[in-house]
Design a protein around this nucleic acid. Sequence first.
DNA 1: GCAAAAGTGTTACGCGTACACCCATGG
DNA 2: CCATGGGTGTACGCGTAACACTTTTGC
Lengths: 222, 222
Amino acid sequence: MTYTYEYPHPAVTTDVAVFTLREQQLQLLLICRRHDPHKGKWALPGGFLEIDEDLEECAKRELKEETGVSDLYLEQLFTLGRPNRDPRERVISVTYYALAPANKLTVNAGSDAAEADWFPLSQLPELAFDHAEIIRRAQERLAAKALYSTIAFQLMPETFTLSELQSVYEILRNESLDKRNFRKWILSLNQLEEVGGKQRNGNHRPAKIYRALNPNHVEIIR
Amino acid sequence: MTYTYEYPHPAVTTDVAVFTLREQQLQLLLICRRHDPHKGKWALPGGFLEIDEDLEECAKRELKEETGVSDLYLEQLFTLGRPNRDPRERVISVTYYALAPANKLTVNAGSDAAEADWFPLSQLPELAFDHAEIIRRAQERLAAKALYSTIAFQLMPETFTLSELQSVYEILRNESLDKRNFRKWILSLNQLEEVGGKQRNGNHRPAKIYRALNPNHVEIIR
DNA sequence: GCAAAAGTGTTACGCGTACACCCATGG
DNA sequence: CCATGGGTGTACGCGTAACACTTTTGC
């Protein structure tokens, strides 16, 4: 079966930069390409848009097919489409970034990818296409948005302690924060509620447990 | 001549929301559609991507062809592509927004549009496709970006007075600003230089004339 | 001299930042 | 009882916001 048009049409793909926190650092989900072009190189999960699916659906579907990951916070990043960025044909790529809590994220390679794995941002392998640029811009957006929204909550499991949350902000902002000031600030946003429990993490006082009031919505603050 | 693919391909278009300041309000450039679908309705300038041009080139070309307008500040907004948003075929639209100084903006309708004209944002006509959503998001982005960048300068002619600039900020932010605080703030950014002249605007003291130090670059501030 | 916009400093308040010690637990 | 991270309050300084009068021009 073939499809014929009066004018040339580009192909459209989505690509997703998925971030999570593992081992106290930001990590990115990449797949190893099974086919040419760039066979054997690492790339963002993504693929061609089906003719009757929405862009965001496509991003979610490809992510699930290639890595087994689903149910993430997903936000459109930007669209690039330089001629010749893909040697096969003209490809327009609509890029997204996604955030996932570290717990219970099981990654399974799918059929189009030889392998899927997490990489610390500081130790990325050589990347296919112009995916390095996409990652750079996703990281910029994430860092900026952490300053004026509750997007960082999307990296947390359902419940967490304030120390854990502070640690996430410290990693995103790449600086250490004062414990008292952080707690005053984060509680003043009225976006957290205490769930009456304690978490024991070792030989020390257990921590109160909190939960995001609107875990499925990123609030704009300041 | 026809073009054949193994899988169905969507069409890709660009659409541009061009803002300017006229008559002390934000106005938007629209064209009246000459052909179906939505013949006779007003729409954003834009059109189909050529197979060897970059996305931004396409936006600029369509804008020039349809309205005669060129040399604007142009920034990508977002990409939408719901199935069935265009009755002809699947269309992915990469949207941009643009800002233009009001002076010397001559608008000329092109071949694909019956007419091109400016509309105050508060008095928009019925719009084709989902262009109302694009306009809403462009306006949100512009208002947000005015708070943390020098993007408002893109609405100014080459030289201007501080009162004129303040008026632009008041329109964008939809609130009146204190004259002394505004001047202190805008001058503290070190983005303006005085050009040694005065502007007489009527029966009152003439104003000093300023110019943006980097008129072709939007600086991030705060 | 009158109308109309240009231009100019000071004060107050609130928020962000800096900073150190006690508490609860496990071993 | 010791080690470890959890939890708490105050003081200072800076930056934002509020506020009114004099100057220059045209008619």
